[in-house]
């Protein structure tokens, strides 16, 4: 396999080009499908294969920036992006992000920041995952039975399955009101939108994650977007935050350009396939896979926390295996589903 090894000049390590392309491909599929960056997977993967953590983060952000251009273009073409809402989310989230970052700095002075933030991460991911499972297995079945099970109803007349939380927020008529036609939202208070994105930005700053992980479920459950519009629109936040992160890390010399380019080649192919798969999988199917993914991400953080508490390297290895395994399995599921649906569409089944 030495023939596939390349020299990465900045980090100064030999790396197998096939592994880089595979990591890029997996993260591309996941990013295109869920409308997020996939940093939760690439950063530890690069770190496991010998990148120092800061270089792994910087290289990952550069890759996310490149791949999110392709994902945004693809979702734009499929009509999945609400630019108006996306640009509001980017602008307001920056303010929330800075507040979250300041809280982290304050926590660092107490010397216990890592521990507190990891537990916040666990609570956030576990809570969100449980809610999404509940939504999938209980709420949406009930809602479908109540509203859409009228025989003979044309598909175009079926109303989007909005969350109850979003519908309650629409009732608050605090001016100025704003509409988002692409997202099928007739009127919602601008203040509510600002408050929601301030909170998501704060969570991003506190937990140090790019945004897609938080924005996508927020758009679905709090603002009431259809799932695939949420996937496309959350990519705007990912695009801008990763562009910023890429530049800042590169200025600090923490980006390995050669690795980032190779990752991007794999990711660009993956991202187009992932974004195309959205077309073939129902909105609630996407939500279910997302819930499974973040449940395993939470499990990985809990395992990592055990390592920090006990010092046993077994837990660290387990955390890494859970992360990489989850990414590979989710990628395989998406590809399999896409393949089956395309075969069905072409009438081969």
């Amino acid at each position: 396999m030495n023939v596939f090894n390349i020299n990465l000049p900045v980090v100064g390590v030999q790396f197998n080009i096939l592994i880089l392309v595979l990591i890029g491909f997996c993260v591309g599929v996941i990013a295109g499908f869920f409308g997020e960056g996939g940093g939760w997977f690439v950063t530890p993967a690069l770190n496991i294969f010998g990148f120092p953590m800061a270089y792994a983060i910087g290289t990952c952000l550069s890759n996310i920036f490149g791949q999110s251009i392709g994902a945004t273009k693809r979702h734009q073409r499929m009509g999945n992006i609400d630019w108006k809402l996306g640009l509001i989310s980017v602008t307001v989230s920056i303010v929330g992000f800075e507040i979250g970052s300041q809280v982290v700095l304050a926590l660092e002075k107490t010397g216990n920041a890592g521990n507190i933030i990891r537990w916040c991460y666990v609570v956030f991911l576990s809570g969100l995952s449980c809610f999404m499972f509940y939504d999938y297995f209980v709420l949406q079945k009930r809602q479908l039975n109540d509203e859409n099970e009228i025989p003979g109803t044309p598909v175009e007349d079926i109303q989007p399955c909005r969350s109850k939380i979003a519908e309650r927020l629409y009732i608050i008529k605090l001016p100025p009101m704003i509409s988002f036609p692409i997202s099928q939202i007739k009127a919602v208070s601008l203040w509510i939108i600002i408050a929601i994105f301030l909170c998501t930005g704060f969570c991003s700053g506190l937990l140090g994650i790019g945004g897609g992980f938080i924005i996508m479920p927020t758009l679905i459950y709090l603002i009431g977007l259809p799932t695939i519009i949420a996937v496309g629109t959350s990519l705007i936040t990912v695009l801008f935050s990763s562009a910023y992160g890429c530049f800042i890390y590169a200025v600090n010399g923490r980006v390995e350009l050669v690795a980032a380019v190779i990752l991007l080649i794999g990711a660009s192919i993956g991202v187009q396939i992932g974004a195309t798969a959205v077309k073939y999988i129902k909105g609630y199917g996407i939500r279910l896979l997302f819930a499974i993914m973040i449940a395993f991400a939470a499990l990985s953080v809990i395992t990592e926390q055990f390592y920090k508490m006990t010092g046993k390297s077994f837990f660290q290895t387990m955390a890494e295996i859970i992360l990489l395994g989850t990414a590979l399995i989710i990628t395989t599921i998406i590809l399999s589903k896409l393949y089956i649906e395309i075969r069905k569409e072409r009438g081969r089944y």
């Binding site: 550069s62 890759n63 490149g66 273009k73 693809r74 562009a243 890429c246 530049f247 350009l257 991007l264």
Partner: peptide
């Protein structure tokens, strides 16, 4: 940093 950002943007667009 400028080269990294521009290369990733250009490659991302081309690959798309």
């Amino acid at each position: 940093a400028i080269v990294v950002t521009l290369v990733m943007a250009a490659l991302g667009t081309t690959m798309a």
